[in-house]
Simulated scan of single mutants.
Amino acid sequence: MLTINNLEVIYNEVILVLRGLSLVVPEGAIVALLGSNGAGKSTTLKAVSGLLPTEQGEVTDGSVSFDGRDITRVDAADRVRLGISLCMEGRHIFEHLTVHENLIAGAYIHGRAPQEDLDLVYEYFPLLSDLRARTAGFLSGGEQQMLAIGRALMAKPKLLMLDEPSLGLAPKLVQEIFGYIARLNAELGTTVLVVEQNATRALEVAHHGYVMEQGRLVLDGPAAELRDNPDVKEFYLGLGEGGTRKSYREVKHYKRRKRWL
């Protein structure tokens, strides 16, 4: 469904963030994009959604294809019409609107909000149904994240992209949010690309995973294999030998893999 080929992104005409990034998101799959702060994960989602120009960023090389079509230069609104929805980091709901009004706004690109679409969101997030008249700015962090996902679903996406959905949430809520993601994929067939620092939760629901460092991919494979990979355990799951975390320089295997960076 989504193919990123040799993508290069520059901010302010000088800051190179993505360095020849290539990845594939198959239709009907959940793909996790992992990495530390500054690795380029959010920039990847903005390149796919067409939001780079709002932050003085631009694609200078490579391509982005969605559903067999090159969308590298397509306007962001047109990408939403094609079936791409992004839940940005920090949720970015309309705080002054009610929960119900937020959901209606999510369907704006299609001209109206069919009742069956609203009913579907309330079915998946019954708490939002109870809070439909509540001003969104007064919701808890977990409720706002549910609302952000629900609003994205109102656009009827083929590809749902989530940027740090666990950010600022308690562990129990994180588990709930990823449970919703897995259910949407299994029951609706929604293709999902999720960017996460919580590698444990992301790899539990993902089918495939990629690990980014400094704007490039250093690892990828089936989620189960990444969970068992010693480097991923060491640096992203906190499961190093003896229960202690080492520096990158002390792990020769990791250094060999990163030498070309």
Score class of each variant (00 low, 15 high):
A182T: 12
L160C: 11
L188Q: 15
A170N: 09
L184R: 14
L203D: 09
A182L: 14
L173D: 04
Q197A: 10
V211S: 04
E164F: 01
V211E: 03
E196D: 09
H207T: 02
A199G: 06
A186P: 06
L169T: 07
I181S: 03
E164L: 01
Y210K: 03
Q197K: 11
F178V: 12
V174N: 14
Q175C: 12
P165G: 01
A206D: 10
P165I: 00
T200C: 11
E204V: 05
K172R: 15
P165C: 02
L184Q: 12
N198T: 07
P165T: 00
H208E: 04
N198E: 06
R201F: 05
E176W: 08
L193G: 13
D163F: 00
T191N: 09
H207I: 01
H207S: 03
T191A: 10
L160R: 11
I177R: 07
V195M: 00
V174P: 13
E204D: 09
K172G: 10
V205Y: 03
S166I: 00
A206F: 09
P165Q: 01
K172P: 10
N198I: 02
V174C: 13
F178S: 13
A182S: 15
R183N: 10
D163C: 02
N185C: 11
V174H: 14
L162R: 00
R183V: 07
L167R: 07
G209I: 05
Y210P: 05
A170S: 08
L167W: 07
V192E: 04
L188W: 12
N185H: 12
A199Q: 07
V205T: 04
T191P: 09
H208G: 06
V205P: 02
Q175N: 14
Q197S: 14
S166Q: 03
A186S: 12
L160D: 11
S166M: 01
V192A: 09
A186K: 14
E187G: 14
A202M: 07
F178P: 14
A202H: 05
V205H: 02
M161Q: 05
G168M: 06
V194I: 15
I177E: 04
R201P: 01
V211D: 03
T200G: 15
A202T: 05
E204M: 08
Y210C: 06
K172D: 13
T200F: 13
E176R: 15
L167H: 09
A186W: 04
E164W: 00
R201I: 02
R201H: 08
L193F: 12
A206H: 08
V192Q: 06
G209N: 07
A170Y: 07
A199F: 04
K172V: 15
V194G: 07
E196R: 04
M161V: 05
H207Q: 02
V195F: 00
N185D: 11
R201V: 02
L173R: 05
V192K: 04
V174L: 12
D163N: 02
M161S: 08
Y180R: 15
A206P: 13
T190Q: 09
T200Y: 13
E196F: 04
G209P: 06
V195E: 00
V211H: 03
V194K: 01
I181T: 08
R201G: 05
I177H: 06
D163Q: 01
G179P: 15
L160F: 12
G209C: 09
L203C: 15
I181H: 02
L188M: 15
R183D: 10
L193C: 14
L162I: 01
